[in-house]
Computed example of a mutant assay.
Amino acid sequence: MHISTKLMASAAIISTAGMAQATESLNVSAYGGSWGDALTSCVFKPFEAETGISVLLEPSASTVTLSKLQAQASAPVIDVAWMDGGVSELARDSDVVAAIDPAMAPGLAGVAEQAKYKTDAGDIYAVGNGYFAIGLVYNTEEITTPPTSWEDLWNPDYAGRVILPSAVHSSGVPFLALVNTLAGGTLDDLTPGIEKMSTLKAALFFDSSGVANSGFQTGEGLIGAHAATQAFTMADSGLPMAYVIPKEGAMASDIRIHIVKGTDDLEASHQLVDFAVQPAQAGCLAAALQVGPATQDVDMPGDVAARMPWGPDGTIADLSVSDWTAINAHRDALTDAWNRIASGN
């Protein structure tokens, strides 16, 4: 009896240790730079404090994260991944993200329906965690007349000092698609966009927001296609930077949370998703990054509300989000063209 009791106790200890190990930490792939800093302070650190589960962050651009998930598909290392719209759909099509169960993440009830991204079968494969817009960012000391159009990127005065996203950055491919459309092309005919871009002299093509910000900080770039959130961040740090929505419209998208298919920590992964979409976390991200909350009923101070991608009085419905299905159907051709443009070939 004594031996049996000891064996049972030992088994319980082993079982408990196994459970603790399973939820001891989560491997998370998310953005680097100021975006990663904001997610850390608004989501990851508070989550660790509340749950005792450590977040092991691996900073990565969305396209790089997707490549990692595809390479690790048979034995995933990452548990939860933040990726931008567009790349998110590619992750869905690659079958590397799991269905998110609303019963395991009850906070999803407070998320706008259009920010719950679903498969054809109706399963949620991604959840929006904040909307952003890409427009014109410029140096106000050297450009005293605010730009009004995407066409201003071709102003001869800015030749060699334009900063643009690369094909690796999630906004690079849709930017070429936009330029092509404005030049009279279609996704089946990229020639007008390629010819238009071949006349634009860029200072650099950035893979990450941090690289773009550095280019503006050093004076290498005067103007570029960049996120409103980054313009506000640089301005708040004392740099003479401003953001305008071009008359043709800004490009809107969002950051999204995904649970990786095959994760051993499904319950803890759902805990992180649930925590990230709470009003307090969504409001914190809105203040830190000026991203529009996908979570409903988030209270924001007036100065934060004024910086939302839909304006101080707008809503998600006012955003013009890229048609990712159409863009992704032509992504290979767009990426190849954009890489050739960036390399000067």
Rank of each mutant, 00 (worst) to 15 (best):
C284M: 03
A203L: 07
F206V: 10
K201C: 11
R256M: 12
A276V: 10
G215I: 01
Y243V: 06
A228F: 00
F216M: 15
V244I: 14
H270C: 00
G249D: 15
S209G: 02
F232Q: 06
L266Y: 02
T218D: 13
A276R: 04
E267T: 13
A242R: 04
K247D: 15
K247S: 15
L289C: 13
E220W: 01
T233L: 02
A227S: 12
Q230E: 15
Q281T: 07
A228S: 14
D274Q: 10
A287H: 01
A228K: 12
Y243H: 03
Q281M: 08
L222H: 03
M251E: 02
V244C: 11
V277I: 13
G238W: 09
D265W: 00
A227I: 05
H270A: 08
D254H: 04
A280P: 06
A252P: 04
P246T: 11
K201H: 00
G221C: 11
S253D: 11
V273P: 04
G283S: 06
Q281D: 08
S253I: 08
L289D: 04
A286N: 00
D207I: 02
L289T: 14
L239F: 03
M234G: 03
A231C: 09
A228D: 09
G238N: 02
G221A: 11
K261H: 03
V277F: 10
F275K: 01
L272M: 09
K201F: 09
L272P: 04
A276E: 07
A287Q: 10
M241N: 07
D265N: 15
P240G: 06
L272W: 07
F205K: 07
Q217L: 05
A225H: 14
D264K: 15
G219T: 08
A227E: 14
A282L: 10
K201R: 01
H258S: 00
A212H: 07
A280N: 02
A225M: 13
V273L: 07
I223H: 05
Y243P: 10
A225G: 11
T263H: 13
F216G: 09
A203P: 07
P279M: 05
Q290V: 09
G221Q: 12
I259K: 08
L204I: 13
A227C: 05
V273T: 06
G210V: 00
Q278L: 10
F275C: 11
A280Y: 01
A268W: 02
R256L: 13
